[in-house]
Write a protein that binds this DNA or RNA. Structure first.
Length: 174
DNA sequence: CCCTGATTCGC
DNA sequence: GCGAATCAGG
């Protein structure tokens, strides 16, 4: 359906994220529908390549500003809302997602709860919490190859319309 | 293996 | 103009 492409606001977002020091892959993930190559290509065409980085090619990217972080989180929700399931029935949980700084050191946790900055291609994009708050996170668990969600959230996202109708499990992002 | 940006070149 | 493939590197 959506052919998208480099619309004005997508370019604007790209500009801000790039200038904010974000890597091409992170930006691509946030924009959705494009690869990091596309982002890099666009960056070059826009004439803002090879800049913003600290020294030569500092690996540690500068921490993004809270503002950018939140704005992009919202952008993600708007542009990458789960397709199979309409979002009309649920809203971001009003409650504050309890801050969970240090999980467990041992064993790989199945549930990561990552910020937009740590969300990778292979991670579940299921949104957790209110995108307008700094506490907003994504599931982050290992996603099913080819799908944007982990097994748990894929089940929720891809429920058949018939069952979904009387099943309220989708009432909120959890 | 994870990742980074840079460049080329067919479309 | 676009971006996959590729390159070069951390």
């Amino acid at each position: 359906m959506e052919a998208v492409g480099w619309t004005d606001d997508r370019v604007a977002l790209l500009r801000r994220l790039w200038e904010d020091g974000q890597s091409a892959s992170k930006i691509a993930a946030q924009l959705g529908g494009v690869t990091r190559n596309a982002v890099i290509g666009k960056v070059h065409r826009l004439g803002l390549a090879g800049r913003a980085r600290g020294g030569e090619e500092a690996t540690a990217a500068a921490a993004p500003s809270k503002t950018v972080e939140i704005e992009t989180a919202i952008a993600v929700v708007e542009t990458q809302a789960p397709e199979p399931v309409a979002i009309l029935s649920h809203r971001p949980t009003p409650e504050f997602p309890a801050p969970k700084p240090a999980p467990a050191p041992t064993a790989l946790a199945v549930s990561q709860r990552v910020t937009i900055m740590d969300l990778r291609e292979s991670m579940c994009r299921w949104p957790l919490g209110d995108p307008t708050t700094p506490e907003f996170r994504f599931c982050g668990a290992r996603s099913i190859t080819g799908l944007p969600y982990c097994t748990h959230h894929a089940e929720i996202a891809y429920q058949p319309a018939a069952e979904r109708k009387r099943d309220r499990r989708v009432a909120s992002f959890r």
